[in-house]
Structures are given as structure tokens and as C-alpha cells.
Design a protein around this nucleic acid. Sequence first.
DNA 1: CCTTAGCACTCTGGGCGACAGAGTGCTACG
DNA 2: CGTAGCACTCTGTCGCCCAGAGTGCTAAGG
Lengths: 349, 349
Amino acid sequence: MAERERPELGQRKSAVLRAVVEQYVHTGEPVSSESIAEHAGLGVSSATIRNEMAALEELGYLTHPHTSAGRIPTDVGYRHYVDSLPAGGRLREAQRRLIAGYFAEAIVDLEEVLKGSVQLLSRLTQYAGLAVPPSAVEEPIVRIELVDMGPTLMILVIGQHGRVDKQVIDKPDRVDAAMLRDTDRRLQRLHGTTYLDAQASLLRLAAEGGKAERELLLHVAETLRIATQGERSAHMMVGGVSNLAGEAQQMRRETLRRLFETLEREQEMLGVLTDIGSSRADLNVTIGAEHPSTGQWEASIITAPFKTGETALGTIGVVGPTRMDYLTAMASVRAVAKRLSELATELDQ
Amino acid sequence: MAERERPELGQRKSAVLRAVVEQYVHTGEPVSSESIAEHAGLGVSSATIRNEMAALEELGYLTHPHTSAGRIPTDVGYRHYVDSLPAGGRLREAQRRLIAGYFAEAIVDLEEVLKGSVQLLSRLTQYAGLAVPPSAVEEPIVRIELVDMGPTLMILVIGQHGRVDKQVIDKPDRVDAAMLRDTDRRLQRLHGTTYLDAQASLLRLAAEGGKAERELLLHVAETLRIATQGERSAHMMVGGVSNLAGEAQQMRRETLRRLFETLEREQEMLGVLTDIGSSRADLNVTIGAEHPSTGQWEASIITAPFKTGETALGTIGVVGPTRMDYLTAMASVRAVAKRLSELATELDQ
DNA sequence: CCTTAGCACTCTGGGCGACAGAGTGCTACG
DNA sequence: CGTAGCACTCTGTCGCCCAGAGTGCTAAGG
């Protein structure tokens, strides 16, 4: 729809826009026509650049802090810039090596790998990294156990991809060792079914059994529900937040506080990420006010799904100020997601 | 030793110091002699207060931003203030209810309780909350299992207090189902021993068994080692960091960044907390430059251990700016630690 | 000897005007 | 259509002044 209103820019306008974005990202200062004329190598004078800039401002791609200041990109400007970027953004050699080095270590626990990836991304980009682990819904269960802890009981569920969900509950009355063994055996039937299917099966099983057993099974079902349904379980991972505190020269204190607040609220943040990732593209970029939440904190989010074959597992990404080095950030996220997908595919066999 | 150099202040000097600290914490502005004379109810004129203030400055408890500004407390000033505080600081009714409400919920998983306590503390104090879970060293093992995940193998250790440690490894060659069952049975001997003792036992067992089994057992020992020795396992919990971003009006950007950075580095932060908590007091307060790290970020840390009976389990606390509401913060930390200790004692039976 | 009133002194912060510099927008010309 | 040139506008800074806040000191009084 925005496509309709903002038709293809001329080649030179695009070049000017790109130059403005890149210079502004680099220096953080409004960009003057003269510096573009000098550095961008377009072979035209500053006056011509000024005309182009005025036109770009008219079209909504640039703004003015005040009359006699240079131009800075608007969200729309960044959007055009990002869309016109070549797909295969390049990384510095050092960055490539960092990524390669990380994935050379043989870590086989997906959760550990993701934790590391978050760190990796935040180091690559100097923004905050984030990761959303696979939802358990479709994950086959390898084992369910009831562990007797004395006065309490631990329900333990192990998934095919290495996730472990646990819940500790007060041991219901009238539950003894024999009964636990019995229920435990019954739970073994669920091995191999997915978290989702197992929930349905449990409800059926619960209906059959005696009162005490029913209570137990319902608790198990609850554990699975929590594991699949977010709430306290959907533990999104965030790292490198301190980068934002330093980097964000221009962010006002209040803006920064709100950003941090949201990053701490898993549920809210997951909602935002779901919105952004719903397009199922290989790389999603959301710039400033394009999303109501990110608009609030003048931030951009770049995410990419990682998958085995064609099925999406989870998401990784970075959060940074709108004035972000999109080229590097996009390339980093894309590269890490690619490696993660390869690794996941390998683990899956 | 500081005790030696700074002898007991007179009663009035103490009162003036307290008034300055409290007013400064409240308003964030340097405090003038006149406002103390008016509000502190000491029944003397501002000139007298001025004399006292000059003396306090001489002694190192107060400073001056510049000649004609009011006084602000130094770290030493805060220290004296804190030490002279009555032990049973009081909380507002609303805060009491918040704490009572939280502990009224029947959560029996220590880890969950701690996560909640961190949130609770950050809401009570408006600073960042933190918690260090019990070390596994002395915790009895309830169960050790080897879970066959296809190409990989998960080592799973469950502790008496509800902790679950896992490590996923590549399945060593020459390991088949029968052998897993066999080793699994052998591992059952370790049930009931502590994480620490189990490590020693494993090394002995490993020496006896065949080559493939030895490799397995060594991996198990490694899992236990990681669980007891910090590294990636000692997952300190931090929450409410966004409070600091807003609250810290006076903190410079750079200071804030460093603080956040340290909060993200578990190992470093754990080191600081260990230093602070080593006194084994019921409540530890470290103010600004009293610790080299906290000095760097102009912050104070308040911690308290929680225990069952006499054995310390872990630590909770808050981190805030030196200009902190010590009264409330100390009372909050003390109250939450007390409740946690009660809860832990209860769970332990 | 301690307290206090009074006063001179100092430093900050805001308001004001002037000014240099940066950058634009426009016009007129090739 | 591009460009040189120029008038115009706005910011940031500097110096200045002034009001206000708060101190330090002195001298007088209990």
C-alpha cells in the first residue's frame, strides 16, 4: 500500500537517499548537500543534490531538524534504503571469522547454542541480540517422569530437541510410591507423541483413572500446557542490552527506559516479535513507527527464522536504534540464522 | 579501620547528617543549611547548622559541588547514616502487603520463587533486584539419568531442592541401549549423595569400567562439575534493570553503560556479590567506592543471605544508585530474605 | 563557650544580544 | 536540466549582566 503511494524513485534520488542514510548512520549528524556532493561520487554539484533532497523531503523520505540544518532520513527513508539493499550484504572478515569460530565449537544443546547466538549477535552488531527458542507444540516427547522429592513431586518432560520442562508440585494426598510407579508406566505411552497431542491424550487418560491419579495426570497436562503456551515458560533470550545504553546517544532517557522495560517483559516482547515475524520472510526488518511498539522507543528490529528444512523452529534477531547500521545488522542476522538452520538440520538427523 | 579514624559523631552532628542524607535522597538537590533548620526540627538556626555542616565536611561526611551550593553526602556520609539506622526499618503498609501477597501463593519450586523474588524486590524498591540460587555443592542428588536422544545423549541430574542440570553430548561410539541401561543402573548408587561427593565417586567408578563406559561416566562428572563450579551454570538472576535507566537521573550515560555491562556478566557480578557477602552478616550494604567495582558505577548494593536453619543457601539483594533510599531498600531486602528463609526451611522438611 | 543575627562574598543559571558558520532555497544563466 | 551565486534563516556560542541561593565569617548576646 505504501508501495502505491510512493512510486519507484529515480536512480539518482535513490543514490542520494542511500548516501544520506549511510552518512547519517555513520556520523549521527544531519547530512548536508555539500558533503554528499563531495563524498558520494555522483559527479554533480551540491546545488543539484539540494534539489534532489528537497524532492526527497517532499516525498517523505527525509526531514529537516530546522531550516539551515542538513537532512536526516525518516522511517520511510530507512525503509526504502533497506528495501533497495542488495540481498547478500557483506560482512567484514573479522565478523565472518567470529561467526565461523562460534559454530566450529561442537555444542549440541540447542538451548546453549541459542544463548551463545544471542551473545554472538550482540557482539557482531553492537546492538541487543535476541532469540526465541522453538515452540514445544510440535516437538516429540522423549520422556515424561514423576520424580518423588519427598513432600513434593517434580514433573519432568524431556523433548526431542533437548528441552527440559519441569514443574514442582505439592504431592497430592493418597499418593504413594506404588501409585507413582504405576502412573509413571502409564505415562510412557506418551513417549514419541508431541507436546500438543500428549495433552489431549492425558485428558483422556485422566478421565479413566481414579481420583488421585486423575489429579496427577491433570498436573502433567498443565505442565505441558505451560510449556507450549508461553506464560512463564516461553523464555525468550536477550543479551547485550548494555550496548544500547551506550550506543543510544540520541535516545532520550525516557525512551531508553521504555525500551528496557519491554525487553524485560517477555510476553510483550514475544508479541512484538510474532507480529514482525508473521510474514514468514527470510529476514524481517521493522523500522521505528512501522510497528506501534517499536515506534515508542524509536528502535528497529531485525529478525530471521531458523529452520530445519522448511519448518520454522524459532527466531533470532537484533534490536537497535532506528539510526542503525542496517547493512551489517541484516547481514549478521542472516548469516547467524543460516548457520543455525544448518546446525539444527544436522542435529535433527 | 575507618572506625579508628572517624570517631563517634556528636548526637547533633549525626542528626544533621541524617537530615542531609534523607533530604538529598528525597529531592536529589544539594541540601542547604536553611532547609535543614526548617524541616529537621532540631530547634537551632541555620547558622548553627552551617557550622555543623562545615565540621561534617571537614570530617569527610559531606561535600560541596561548588562554593555556594548546598551539601551532598559522600560515600562515607552514607556509610555512617546506614550504620546508625535502626535495625528494624519500617515498610509502608502497601509494601508489606505486596510481600505477604507474594509469599501467600504456594510456589514450591525454589527457582521459581527466586525469580519471583527478584521481581518483587525490584518493584518494592524501584531499583534492580538480584538473586543467587543455592550452590549445588551440598545438595543431595535425587536422580541421575542418561536419556537417549538418538544421535545425542542427555545427562540429567535432579537435586533435592528442585534444581535440574542437563548437558547434551554426542553419543560416544560403541554405546548401545543395553550399555546405557547398565550404566544408568550403576548411576543409581549415587542417589542421595551430594553433587560434590558424587563427583569423586564417579571418578572412582570410571576407573573400574570399560573404555566406553569410562567416557560416559567422565561426561557425567563434567556435568556435575559445571553445576557446582559456576561457569555457565551459576545463573544469577537479575530483574528490574529498566528501573535503573529511568531512576538514574544523575548517572552519566557511560556510568550507566558500565553498570549494565557488569549486570550482564554473571561471573563478574557473582564475584562482586561474593566479596560483599563474605562477612556473613544478616544484611550487607556496600556503598559506592567501598568496593572497586561498585565505585566505578556510583552504585550501592544491598544483599542478604537466605538460609535453612543456620546454613546459608543463597543471596538476594538490590542494586541502585549511591543516592538510594537505604531505609526502604534495606527493610525490603531484609523482609524478603526472612520470608525466603522461612519458606526454604519449610520446604526442607 | 555555644548560638545566632547579619552581612559580604562567591558561584550558578538564565536571559539577552551579537556574531560566525552552516546549510538551505531560489533565481538566473549556460 | 544542471549549476553558480547569493540572500536568507537558523543554530550554537560567547560574553555579559543580573538575580538568587547559599556559604563563611564576624561580632554580639546568652
